[in-house]
Design a protein around this nucleic acid. Sequence first.
DNA 1: TTGACTCAGTCTTGTTTCAAGACTTAGCTG
DNA 2: CAGCTAAGTCTTGAAACAAGACTGAGTCAA
Lengths: 150, 150
Amino acid sequence: MRWNELSDETCSLARTLAVIGDRWTLMVLREAFLKVRRFDDFQSRLGIARRVLTERLSHLVEHGVLEKQAYQTRPLRHEYRLTAKGRDLYPALLSLVHWGDRHYAGADGPPVVHTHISCGHEFHSVLSCSECGEPVEARAVTVRPGPGAG
Amino acid sequence: MRWNELSDETCSLARTLAVIGDRWTLMVLREAFLKVRRFDDFQSRLGIARRVLTERLSHLVEHGVLEKQAYQTRPLRHEYRLTAKGRDLYPALLSLVHWGDRHYAGADGPPVVHTHISCGHEFHSVLSCSECGEPVEARAVTVRPGPGAG
DNA sequence: TTGACTCAGTCTTGTTTCAAGACTTAGCTG
DNA sequence: CAGCTAAGTCTTGAAACAAGACTGAGTCAA
């Protein structure tokens, strides 16, 4: 079986991975959150093969994560911007970055620090419960079939 | 260039993806969080090719995300368990799942619901700031080079 | 003590995807 | 007109993947 033949109905993760579960795709999204928007900028910052970049960008556009907008007309040029759906990926992406920071930063600390504008502090991400607001960890969660289960 | 030649020093995400940024790997981890521990259970639940599963599991063990422990000696059999480092991936994984729930659940709702044992409620995940506790969104965050930058 | 069964892999053989970078197109600039 | 820029497209060889048959070490039941 191929990964993308996994049942979508019982697994939101498979669905998510079908859209963004590819290493270059995630790197492209990281750049997008850093406000990179143009083909050649993605290409030169990542060093990704142009053919692969073309394919990843159109895939993301097709799935509504990015949108392609003209930023000039003569010559016609487009840029790729995150949609609301794309911005919703921020928590997932930041969690992945912070996992890397936590487990692979050298003695000096992480390569990048994030500042929360609202409170003014450097921060790291914490996953919390939408209902009680407390931090969530794996052992405090149970899983059961939901209304959309097959 | 290949994705894994990206500079680790300036990018925790590339480092993270080198360890877990593969679709099957993430599906394996999802099962691990659902308490699946044995080779054949991973294999039959996911339908993954056995060769690929072998490779992914050893990769995860090698990187300290899973550990291989004997659960019986005659015949010698092992199981794969999440380490603390592996459990730290829970926020990232749950965020990915919830993104899928949010954007791809059918009219009925998501295929799986998560209950937070501590408070007893069904919940979804919220990424919050470690300093002020408020939810974080992309536009409220600035990024700059940290102490470990190259 | 033989035959079936379980678990955890390994091996083989096509198929698919990927990487690198040269090439293309359309319009602008000097 | 020559060269430049942005955004791709194309070709070719290399790497990764899927399917599933096979292996080996031990258990169990007759």
